[in-house]
Every structure is written in C-alpha cells, then in structure tokens.
Amino acid sequence: MKPAPFDYVRAESVHHAVRLLAENKDGARIIAGGQSLMTAMNFRMSSPALLVDIGELEHLRDITLTADARLRIGALTRHADLDASPDIAAHTPLLRKAIRHVAHTAIRNRGTFGGSLSHADPASELPACVMALDATIHIVGPDGDRVVPARHFFTGVHETALGAGEVLVAVELDVIKADEVSGFGEFARRQGDYAMVGLAAHGRIAAGLLTAVDLAFFAVGSTPILARRAAAALVDPATPDPAQRLQRAREALSLDLDPPDDPQSSAAMRMELARVLLGRVVGDMLARGAGA
C-alpha cells in the first residue's frame, strides 16, 4: 500500500528537529533510516502529518572514544556501520556479533542504531545488547539534555522512555576490558528474520569461570529481560563446576522468563529454545575466553 499524504522537512540540526516536533505536537514524527517507520506508514498503521528527517545530520553518525574510555555511538550510525567499524569490533564486539542477525544488507545499509532502539521491537537485537552492556541512552528534548540507563529505557512493546518531542542522539557504553567476554545467539526462522528467542550476554572471566554476567533475553516478553536468577547461578562461587552452574542456570531460567504464546511459537517452545540458547552462548563465551 501507499502511505497517506504528509509534509516533509529535512532537519538542519538536532535543535531544529526538536523545535519542529514541539511546533507540530502529535502530528510530527522523526524519520531516521525509515526501515521500520516506512513499513508502518505503507500499511497505514502510522499516518503522521509531518515527517522530520534527521537522516542528513551526519555528525550523529560518529563513533568516538570519550575521554573517560567509553565508546559513544551516534544515533544515526547505520547497522552497516556497526558491522564495518574497527572501533566497534575492537571495543564492543557484542554489537558486531549481533548486527549480522539484523535484517538484510539493503536494510542494514539504511537502518540506524537510534531508530532500532526508539522503535523498541521486542524481537530486535540491539535493545537487548544495550541492556546487557548497561549502556546509557543520550537524549535531547525541549527541556534540554538527559541521560537514561538502557535498563530503564525500554518500557513496553514499541514503548520507551523517550517523551514526545525528544530525540535520541547517542548511546554510550564501556569499552570491553581484558577480562571480559560477550556472547550472542538467536533462533530465527530464516536468516535476517526477527528472532523467536535471542540472547545477548556480557560477562567477566577468571580461571575459566564466569565471575560476573548479564544475560539479556529478547523476543520472550514485551521488552528485553535481564535473567537475574540464571545469571546468579552461572557465577555462584558455591558451585565450582561450570557444567553444574549451567544446569542450575537453565533451571533458574523458568523463574526469570515467562514467554508469551503466539501463533509462531508456543510459550513452552520459546522456554526450551531459551534454555538451549543459554547453553550455547555460555559455552561459546567460556570456550573463547576473555577479551572477545
């Protein structure tokens, strides 16, 4: 189908975009890569009166190391940039692992980091990654700038802490340290499809054992979910055997997750896939060891 008619403005700066959003209240919508918004508009599930295109704000596409050794990734960083950037590969390999699972090349050439987080699809990869990495989300709005922890950013299906009229400008995260390791896996029906179940994980290793880990499961609820009980079992000092830790973690997962039933996959199947994925991802992290 075709979208309903609308007006279109290319924003000249973030503040210009914020002003346009404020002046047009409910009728205005940001477009970044358009890879989710255009599909919704073509189906007329969304019919904004004004599109504010931030896609030409090239400075929002930068990836920089900050003075306090954090990586700042601009909201307009394309999925393809995440894939190609040596800084991403070296400093936050989790994003590099995850990005190849997002859609297909033509969509990765346009879709943006900020767009994916703002869109907050429960089955999408990047929201889970920023939760596992405990990243911060940097926002500019009519009342100035603010920073929201990624773990408080996702509030529901396609719902986030972004207020009307606010623009997500960047994500910041700690660069990976020598004793840290990250892991990623998902089950999807076809290459590039949204996940049926996915897991983004980041942890610390000493003497072949995990000493800390964050497990962000996605496509198992309305937002990515941190599996805290499973994570605690994986690092339990009282259990020295990694296989036993994993077994306890798999059991604990049913306390962390309560996946929904849908026509694509039943709750029981999702739960089983989450357990399988936990084993694979943790096994891979332990096998590779720290630093990757």
Binding site: Y8, G34, M38, N42, G55, A80, T105, A106, R110
Partner: peptide, 19 residues
C-alpha cells in the same frame, strides 16, 4: 525494489524520493 544508492543497496519501497 532493490536499487543501488551511492553504491549501496537500498529498498526502493522504504525510502522516499525526497530522501
């Protein structure tokens, strides 16, 4: 609908002509 824009593939149905 895939075409090349600035040398990279894009979906012609998900990008506006004005973009």
């Amino acid at each position: 609908c895939t075409v090349l824009m600035d040398g990279a593939t894009v979906r012609g149905c998900l990008i506006l002509a004005v973009q």
